[in-house]
């Protein structure tokens, strides 16, 4: 694929967004770095524009009302200063991919986040799914460790961590999404089988690298929700936090909103799963 070539040749990764101060991506104050591209296609993804990578077709360029996009050779180039964040580019894209991405080397990324270092405990790489770029992460994390900062990965669970001890050795913890455990449900919701995620769950637990597991509770999907929460709670016990996330339709593609419901998961419904997880030994379960 084109973007994989781009990544390996230029040693650059596509960065969608940097949030300098975040209180919800691991302990303390952290800088969150969002990579573009994800191997899962979750129906409930609330920033689906980060899933696919721009293929430089140029369709969005003439449609940009702020003239923040232009073609440079065969590349779509985005000018951040002109952008008004209207999302027109995403909506006209056949892949629903954001062109508002900066391809950065580790050095270039560091030059953007260095100023935040005095204020933060560490960084969290997220996405999309940042584990599409393991070599980039290894270099970035090594540099962060030299600066005395912790590094967390927020992962969709597709990447086989057991085959990359080098990455694990420079990563302080992984926040793993376990979205579903019933195979058919996982296949429908995400487009793939759950096995790699569940293997990672066990492997990372054994390696003491799990920082947190997350499950989104979908409204009314009682059997599936219950199966996931029970499975995760049994396994993790009190080894890490278990974040029970209420489904919110904000940002979810319209077609999927219709499938999954246009309502948020009720607080009481999600709280019942927190209690379920806790009753099974996952004492660090909590709701957001």
């Amino acid at each position: 694929m084109l973007w994989i070539e781009g990544y390996s040749i230029m040693k650059k990764a596509p960065i969608n967004k940097i949030i300098y101060f975040s209180n919800v991506d691991g302990p303390g104050n952290r800088t969150s770095i969002f990579f573009q591209g994800c191997s899962f296609h979750c129906h409930f993804c609330h920033n689906p524009e980060t899933i696919s990578l721009c293929q430089n077709c140029g369709r969005c360029v003439p449609q940009c009302p702020a003239k923040a996009l232009r073609m440079e050779g065969r590349q779509v180039v985005w000018e951040e200063a002109k952008c008004v964040q209207c999302d027109t580019c995403i909506h006209v894209c056949q892949l629903f991919a954001s062109p508002r991405v900066s391809w950065l080397t580790v050095e270039e990324l560091l030059s953007r986040i260095n100023r935040a270092l005095p204020y933060i405990e560490g960084i969290t790489t997220s996405g999309g799914d940042c584990t599409l770029y393991p070599d980039f992460l290894k270099e970035l994390f090594s540099r962060m460790h030299q600066a005395g900062k912790t590094c967390l990965i927020d992962a969709n669970g597709a990447y086989d961590f057991s085959k990359d001890s080098a990455l694990l050795s420079v990563c302080d913890g992984i926040m793993l999404d376990v979205k579903a455990v019933l195979p058919a449900w996982h296949q429908w919701l995400i487009g793939q089988a759950p096995d790699p995620v569940l293997r990672n769950l066990d492997f990372l637990l054994a390696q003491h690298k799990l920082q947190e597991v997350r499950t989104v509770i979908l409204p009314g999907q009682e059997e599936e929700n219950k199966a996931t929460v029970q499975y995760v709670a049994h396994r993790i016990q009190d080894a890490c936090d278990y974040k029970i996330i209420r489904y919110r339709p904000f940002g979810v593609k319209e077609a999927y909103q219709k499938e999954l419901g246009e309502m948020e998961t009720a607080v009481e419904e999600a709280e019942a799963y927190v209690r379920l997880a806790q009753s099974l030994g996952a004492s660090r379960a909590y709701m957001v």
Binding site: I19, N23, D25, H46, S126, D154, G251
Partner: peptide, 9 residues
């Protein structure tokens, strides 16, 4: 100062 919606859901 808010947590902007992150990728997780």
């Amino acid at each position: 100062q808010h947590h902007e919606e992150s990728a997780h859901q």
